[in-house]
Simulated scan of single mutants.
Amino acid sequence: MVTVDQSQGPGPISGVGSQTLPPIRACLFDMDGLLINTEDLYTLCADIVLTKYGRPHLPWSIKAQLMGVPGSSHGDTFHSWAQLPISREQFKEEQTGQHRIHFPECKPLPGVEKLLKDLKSAHGTQGLSVEIALATSSHKANYELKTSRPETKAVLDLIPEEHRVLGDDPRIQRGKPAPDIYLLALQAINSSLPEGIPKITPNECLVFEDSVLGVEAGRRAGMRAVWVPHPGLAAEYKGKEKEVLAGRTALYPIGNDEQLGAIDDGRAEQLVSLENFPYDKFGIVVPQDANHPTMDSR
């Protein structure tokens, strides 16, 4: 299990206005469905196999329960719904074959390239640079497939390799919604800071997530969060947004509820996309002359 010096973290959260939030010094990103369009491709791959065996397409009511859970498409929730006439092992093999075909089609989502480039040139209101890291549940083999397209690889390569934590990292004992992967990503950042630069605390981190379990993982890590859900997922959680932002959906209870946020505590918010990101709200300063060409404009 990954541990962190709790003396660096925030104190108990007791509601709106109970604390002054410091400027963000580190942005920690999920990947699938947030930086690249894999959620639509995961659905496509599942639907191809489902259609082959005369089953209906995967609905968001089921998909919403699978997002962010490693191997979830091989578990009870999916197969109890799918009722496929083949074994789980055969479905896994056929779905993996579709992944090999379609994952190389992954593209960055709108606003991602500009956001990452802006953050690489940004600093906080105290003049310290803003660090970025990746915390993805994708294993190395799938990560390489998903980033094999040159434009996609170029965007993900904006995140330093030493700051990328993948789902099969042996140091991760528990997947999301546990906080381990985000605490490990923060450790990777802090271990690379120049001598004399103060270590970054969880309270100075902003987690970017599209999944409900990912938001919970960020909140459990003592970090702030931005939730950017797929429109299909957002529709499934309409009216429950406050619970998602507090990490209190109890989708997969793991205990340690003292790690969770409070409703309307001001430490998480929902965005429609990563375009036109509100840097000022998080104490992030992007130089006025930051004008980055996109991959498509080169």
Rank of each mutant, 00 (worst) to 15 (best):
T3R: 14
Q6A: 12
Q6L: 15
S14L: 14
S18C: 14
S18N: 13
Q19S: 13
T20D: 07
A26K: 10
A26E: 10
L28R: 09
D30F: 05
M31F: 13
D32N: 14
L34W: 02
N37D: 15
D40R: 13
C45W: 02
C45P: 07
I48N: 15
V49R: 09
V49N: 08
L50I: 02
R55E: 08
L58P: 04
W60L: 02
I62N: 01
K63F: 14
K63E: 10
L66K: 05
L66N: 05
V69S: 13
P70Q: 12
S73H: 15
H74K: 13
G75V: 00
D76Q: 13
F78Q: 03
H79Y: 12
Q83R: 14
L84G: 05
P85C: 02
I86W: 10
S87K: 01
R88F: 10
R88C: 10
E89Q: 15
E89W: 04
K92I: 02
Q95Y: 15
G97T: 04
H102C: 00
H102F: 15
H102Y: 15
H102A: 01
P104S: 12
E105P: 00
C106L: 09
K107D: 08
K107C: 09
P110T: 07
G111T: 03
V112W: 01
L116G: 07
L119M: 08
I132C: 07
A133T: 09
A135P: 06
A141L: 12
E144Y: 05
E144C: 04
K146R: 15
S148R: 04
R149E: 11
V155W: 11
D157E: 14
I159Y: 02
I159S: 04
P160H: 03
E161K: 12
D169E: 14
R171D: 11
G175V: 07
A178H: 15
D180M: 05
I181N: 08
Y182G: 04
L184N: 04
L186F: 03
A188S: 12
I189M: 04
I200H: 01
C205F: 13
L206N: 01
F208C: 04
S211L: 05
G214E: 04
V215I: 14
A217T: 06
R219C: 06
R220G: 10
G222N: 10
A225P: 03
V226Y: 03
V226N: 02
W227P: 03
W227A: 05
P229L: 12
P229V: 12
G232Q: 07
G232V: 11
A234D: 14
E236I: 14
K242Y: 00
K242V: 11
E243A: 14
V244I: 07
L245I: 04
L245N: 06
A246V: 08
A250W: 05
P253L: 10
N256L: 11
D257R: 09
D257V: 09
E258A: 14
L260I: 11
L260W: 06
L260E: 03
G266V: 05
E269I: 03
Q270A: 14
Q270P: 01
L271G: 03
E275K: 12
P278F: 09
D280I: 00
K281V: 00
K281S: 03
G283E: 00
V285N: 06
V285D: 00
V286T: 10
Q288P: 00
D289C: 02
N291G: 01
M295A: 12
D296R: 12
